[in-house]
Amino acid sequence: MPEVITVSKLTKKYGNFKAVSNISFNVEKGEIFGLIGPNGAGKSTTMRSMLNFIFPTNGKISVGGFDSVKDYLKIRSIIGYLPGEFTTYDNMTGLQYLTHMMHLRNKPEKVGYAKSLAKKFDLDLNKKAKQLSKGNKQKIGIIQAFCHDPEILILDEPTSGLDPLKQQEFDELILKFKEKGKTIFISSHVLPEVEMLCDKVAIIKNGKIVAENTMAQLKSMAMNRFEIIFKNEVSERKFGKSIGVKNISKSGEKFIFDVEGDVNKFIKKISENKVISFRSMEPDLEEIFLSFYKKNKGKK
């Protein structure tokens, strides 16, 4: 698959502070790529650099084959964008705002699709923004990003403020766009959502990418958890760092092992004992995220 977004050795400095430091990643066509990290990790800086709101100190970004600094207008004509803090104009109704935005995008004919999306999201477009809740304003933001049918979507915390039902509608919309072959770059701290939607994830910490891979590979790289009940009495001391065990806890008869890396040595060691029950628990994205964060604790 061709690469649609390429971030190459991107660094953004403000004085001595590095908001992002030498980060690189690629997003392929038709992929949903998630960038996750806590506030201040560099997610928004990366996204805003893609749109030329912020100029890179070093490195290059290409979106849709266009350079983010030289050809930023071409990039803007093929993307849909939702910023982290979306605000509309208080004196405008949703419909007026979307009409204005579609004119600015030279696609006034897309207002009809915006109306149908509003119906889907249960949003009254005739109300002025000042009469709308945060969640309803966010719906306007989502609609304006999607309704002109862009090739690439760049979404910063898109479901912030949405109720669970509307989050589901949003997830469906995203997957529908993916089916059409669109590329979606999403930043979020709603990890279950990222886990469900994204093909690939990058974890960013203190402006650096600490892990980047497909969900499946990230899971294999992260800590594995096993719940085991032994027939006989077993000493915890038998299971040490040499077989990758990072942590052992006991709850009644049940042992819980956190194992890092290759699990073969660990399983070999376990098989030396009689086992009544053996359960492997796949780590969710939250655990993967925490595992990478703990691993890189202190690294700046």
């Binding site: 964008y81 910023p83 803090e85 605000t87 935005m101």
Partner: peptide, 14 residues
């Protein structure tokens, strides 16, 4: 200040 500029400038407007 009100952060509406981001959306406007995400359209093809220099």
């Amino acid at each position: 200040t009100i952060k509406s500029l981001d959306i406007i400038l995400s359209a093809p407007i220099s």
